[in-house]
Amino acid sequence: MSLYYVQKLLYHLNRDPVQQQHFFEDRDTVFGHYTLTEEEVDALRKPDIGLLYVMGVNAQLLMHYATMSGYDWPQYIQAMRDGIDQYGPVREGLYAMQDGKGAI
């Protein structure tokens, strides 16, 4: 897992429209600038918002990536719930403090 670099990529995309445009034009080149596992690249490429959440991506970063990928708010929330059902509890990061499933 290289959760740090997944989040760093999303941080850069969220705050820099030029990098965001470059990413959606040529994702593979941008992926090459970060230390990512194959699973992470696949989750980012699809995108699989649910898997990214389960990997531990901070939702303050993930929300913006979902939005720029075309998700509206209900779709984004549902994607995370589906991710927990499909992949299990959050593996690391802020939301892994309890059972990894959030507060409910």
Partner: peptide, 10 residues
């Protein structure tokens, strides 16, 4: 608040 998570709104 549980911002941007599946529990958002709780």
């Amino acid at each position: 608040h549980w911002p941007c998570t599946p529990d958002s709104g709780k």
